[in-house]
């Protein structure tokens, strides 16, 4: 069963439309990446899957259920988690409290899931009581992902997870995304580091001016001349 399916989506943030009839799907266990020039509507497309965009036409289906009219807090309960690009931690709260807030809607015991995340991000385990605002960019990115994983989602949305990170951290982040994916979680991400993102993904979508341009497997896109010219620096 297709995990996420976006069909003929047109919409924006209330002003002029940013997306014009875009299609996209994520199959279970896939890593799907959206690339494209600035202003192509990449982040907007991903936010549309999370109820953060005013949708005029088209539909968003999650496991065949129509989630188009749902609010973000309702979509979270369906099994989708979202990591914004910026301001993605609670800065005055500790690492542990950040993770707890990620699991706010859970009523069962969250300790096991928290321990799983600590074992996945040992760095966070060392810093349970540290205040999130005082951590480095790379650590904050880990915490942001950890928070989103607290609900054990079926689909994780990542908005430019490597933005602003040093090359070393970028490599680590892609490795981690692959590891998360290996646990059976579908990933949809927007990335500026197109070359690396295409290398780790199953399929990719190239978006320009709010429309689908090309979609293909990651390997094919990497080999595609047009894509190489546009985004991969020749």
């Amino acid at each position: 069963m297709t995990l996420l399916s976006i069909e003929g989506l047109t919409g924006g943030y209330g002003g002029a439309d940013i997306l014009h009839g875009v299609d996209l799907r994520v199959e279970p266990g896939e890593i799907v990446v959206i690339i494209g020039p600035n202003g192509a509507g990449k982040s907007t497309l991903m936010k549309a899957a999370f109820g953060l965009v005013k949708i005029k036409e088209g539909a968003v289906l999650f496991e065949k259920r129509d989630i188009t009219p749902l609010r973000p807090d309702q979509i979270v309960r369906q099994g989708i988690s979202y990591v914004p690009q910026e301001r993605n931690v609670f800065p005055s709260m500790s690492v542990e409290e950040n993770l707890e807030m990620g699991a706010f809607i859970r009523t069962d015991d969250i300790r096991p899931q928290m321990e799983r995340i600590y074992s996945f991000f040992p760095r966070l385990a060392e810093r349970r009581t540290q205040i999130a605002g005082s951590m480095s960019g790379g650590e904050r990115q880990m915490l942001a992902m950890g928070r989103a994983l607290m609900l054990d989602p079926k689909l994780l949305l990542l908005d430019e997870p490597t933005a602003g990170l040093s090359p070393l951290f970028i490599d680590q982040t892609f490795e981690r995304i692959q590891k998360i994916n290996a646990a059976g979680i579908g990933i949809l991400m927007v990335e500026q580091n197109a070359k690396q993102a295409l290398a780790v993904c199953d399929r990719g979508y190239v978006l320009t001016m709010g429309r689908n341009r090309i979609d293909d497997t990651g390997a094919n896109l990497l080999a595609n001349k047009d894509v190489a010219e546009m985004f991969l620096g020749g």
């Binding site: 807090d73 914004p84 993605n88 931690v89 409290e97 609900l151």
Partner: peptide, 24 residues
Amino acid sequence: TKMGKAMRAMSDNMDLALVSGIPS
């Protein structure tokens, strides 16, 4: 308490609280 922490979370970062599913 969970509710008390949620209050701090909302005050800290409203948008993130909403996407985390905290019932505003």
